[in-house]
């Protein structure tokens, strides 16, 4: 993780609710894979929820952000509101027709569906190839 931490490319902040259900974990897995594929970089929603200034200020200062909630309870959205962070792009996993349950055996086709919804929300046709992400430490944008 550290090697790409300050990579200037693909500077979309990805925040997932990562909640305790299939859809919460689908949000998490989609965020991981989109990060690996170079769409952006997953960031710690928990740090924002904990009101830690580095995390909150980072979310306030970022130009492009997508928040992924598993369900309509909207915990990620609520955390951002609580922290005074403007919501930008927003995806709810259940809006893609995936039902919420407690089965944590995530299906590849459902992960793909969530990733597709995120890419649509971000107006991105396809993720950047992983080998295009920086392997060096540099300053942000």
């Amino acid at each position: 993780m550290v090697q790409n931490f300050f990579a200037p490319q693909s500077n979309v902040m990805i925040l997932a609710c990562s909640g305790g259900s299939n859809v919460g974990q689908l949000s998490n897995q989609a965020a991981i894979e989109l990060t690996q594929e170079g769409l952006g970089k997953m960031f710690c929603l928990a740090g924002i929820g904990g009101n830690l200034s580095g995390f909150v200020q980072s979310a306030k200062d970022i130009d492009q952000m997508v928040a992924i909630d598993g369900c309509k309870v909207g915990c990620a959205k609520a955390i951002l509101e609580q922290a005074g962070v403007p919501l930008q792009e927003y995806v709810v996993v259940t809006d893609s027709g995936i039902e919420k349950d407690k089965n944590f055996s995530l299906k590849a086709e459902e992960i793909a569906k969530v990733k597709s919804a995120v890419l649509d929300a971000c107006g991105t046709g396809a993720p950047v190839a992983a080998d295009q992400t920086s392997k060096t430490i540099g300053c942000c944008g």
Binding site: S53, G54, V56, S58, A59, C139, G141
Partner: peptide, 27 residues
Amino acid sequence: GVMDIAGYGVFGTPAVVIDGDVKCVGK
């Protein structure tokens, strides 16, 4: 230092911290 910077929980750099409070990030 990368790990030192990461300890502040910032998404990017440059960042300014005043008395432990992060004031701006990535610009």
